[in-house]
Design a protein around this nucleic acid. Structure first.
Length: 218
DNA sequence: ACCCAGGTGGCCC
DNA sequence: GGGCCACATGGG
């Protein structure tokens, strides 16, 4: 078994299934992916709840809505001025080029879609891959700061760039979309529980393979 | 009173 | 290619 699968099994055994991504529709997943940038998910939930309540969780509506009104509705997700612009930019783009239809948007090769997502200001590597994996059902492994930290501390992989780490995961894991979804979610859960400023390494499911043992961090 | 969250882009060297 | 910074609310 690969070292990565060993890690996955440890995490799954410890935390159980994470059921990511929460969201009733593909569009909701995309909106969440943009709003959750460097922000706690609970703050994003409130913003999405507001959009739903006002029946504004809709691509064409957001594409055309007043920016100030949008800012107010997503305020709880933080960086709300930037995020309102990002959301509108994506929605305008999708409406203009794909008639607001995500099925059409995703009906191409992952790399083609990825390039297109990255061309939109406000969507970087992680957000693009989250959208591809969780909304588009594409085989793209999502890398985030927790993934980098986990790889450094366990000595799984020396980290250089986003793409190098992503290649490493994609080459050493079975080509299974559900596994990709679950693994990324589990790594986030690991990070939230054990890799903060006050770590609890004694209870960490990776304590036996983390090269830093119980005392050294970052 | 801190710390930090399911990042990104701009600017500098 | 890396290092630093602004962006902002809300929970522990």
């Amino acid at each position: 078994m690969s070292k990565l699968m060993n890690v996955y099994n440890r995490l799954f055994k410890h935390f159980g299934p994470q059921h990511w991504w929460p969201g009733e529709t593909r569009f909701e997943v995309v909106v969440g992916a943009i709003l959750t940038q460097n922000t706690a998910w609970t703050n994003v939930e409130k913003a999405i709840k507001n959009l739903k309540k006002e029946k504004m969780l809709n691509c064409r509506k957001i594409a055309n809505m007043d920016i100030k009104k949008l800012e107010k509705m997503i305020r709880s997700s933080g960086f709300y001025k930037q995020k309102a612009e990002k959301l509108k930019r994506f929605c305008r783009y999708l409406d203009k080029n794909y008639d607001s239809n995500l099925n059409s948007f995703f009906n191409r090769s992952p790399d083609e879609i990825r390039t297109e997502l990255l061309s939109l200001n406000g969507i970087g590597n992680e957000t693009a891959d989250s959208i591809l994996l969780y909304a588009g059902e594409k085989l793209k492994f999502v890398i985030d700061s927790y993934t980098v930290r986990m790889c450094e501390r366990t000595g799984i992989k020396k980290v250089k760039t986003y793409h190098q780490l992503q290649d490493f995961f994609e080459k050493n894991l079975p080509k299974d979309i559900e596994l990709y979804k679950e693994f990324h979610a589990l790594i986030v859960e690991l990070g939230k529980n054990f890799c903060r400023k006050k770590p609890r390494c004694d209870e960490c499911p990776l304590k036996n393979i983390c090269k830093y043992g119980l005392s050294v961090h970052d």
